[in-house]
């Protein structure tokens, strides 16, 4: 396992080479390599069990791995997990965001387009799916991270709420020059809100620019079939 910092390469924030993760004698990730430019958004795509969440856990140093993960110097990571258990815990949004005692709740909520008046005193467990995801983004941003890892941003969120959440992420990326890594299943999200795509299925199936997802030949590599109409198939 080797976590390090990259030297003299201002353009890139993350360099992963030959990353493999084995859990309970099963290979979850095999020889994954990719590089990510600063201030860009990477969508991580793949079927269930493809190793997407494990990739994030490895990037956060939460699971043992072999290979190399190099973050740029002075990188600060904010993490938004897919599942959190809040239903039975009487914790208000204000308390959750003030975890480190030095957070202005109002200014934490405004970047994620939530009003202090409406949600600050509410218990986390009674928030809608969309509100909860936004509060989680706000929480991840409290440390002023320059990298945001976002595991399935639309879990528990209705379709109408998905777009504003991604618009918020996109805005954060532009305004604060945050690098975003997000796990998603949605081709539309990949195309609209990410710059690069990493398709996983244990190993890397595809890594390249996100707009390539509309290319039928790339879709066949990722999904084994064409899943939606898009750009003409240049390889045909």
């Amino acid at each position: 396992m080797c976590t390090g910092t990259m030297e003299n390469n201002d353009d890139y924030v993350l360099n992963v080479s030959n990353l493999s993760v084995k859990l309970q004698n099963q290979t979850i990730l095999d020889n994954v390599s990719f590089k990510l430019k600063r201030g860009t958004a990477l969508a991580v795509l793949g079927p269930n069990g493809a190793g997407k969440t494990i990739l994030f856990r490895a990037l956060l140093n939460l699971v043992p791995y072999t290979g190399k993960i190099e973050w740029a110097e002075k990188v600060k990571i904010g993490y938004v997990p897919q599942n959190i258990a809040v239903d039975d815990i009487p914790i208000s949004v204000k308390e959750f965001l003030s975890y480190k005692n030095r957070v202005n709740v109002e200014s934490s909520l405004s970047p994620v387009r939530l009003s202090n008046k409406n949600v600050a005193d509410k218990t986390l467990g009674i928030l809608s799916g969309g509100q909860l995801r936004r509060v989680l983004i706000a929480w991840a941003l409290t440390d002023n991270p320059n990298v945001l890892l976002f595991d399935e941003p639309t879990t528990g969120v209705d379709h109408d709420t998905e777009e504003p959440i991604f618009a918020t992420l996109s805005e954060l990326k532009e305004k604060n020059k945050i690098t975003i890594l997000l796990i998603t299943h949605d081709v539309h999200i990949v195309r609209e809100y990410s710059d690069y795509l990493l398709a996983l299925d244990g190993g890397v199936k595809f890594f390249g620019e996100s707009k390539e997802i509309m290319n039928p030949s790339i879709q066949r590599i990722i999904y084994g079939e064409t899943v939606c109409a898009g750009a003409p198939d240049e390889n045909r």
């Binding site: 856990r57 956060l60 939460l62 990571i77 959190i84 815990i89 914790i91 975890y99």
Partner: peptide, 17 residues
């Protein structure tokens, strides 16, 4: 107290902090 509560909400979230 808060550390424990954060761990209950999400162990990964707590470890990442």
């Amino acid at each position: 107290y808060r550390k424990l509560v954060l761990g209950m909400i999400s162990e990964e979230l707590a470890i990442s902090k």
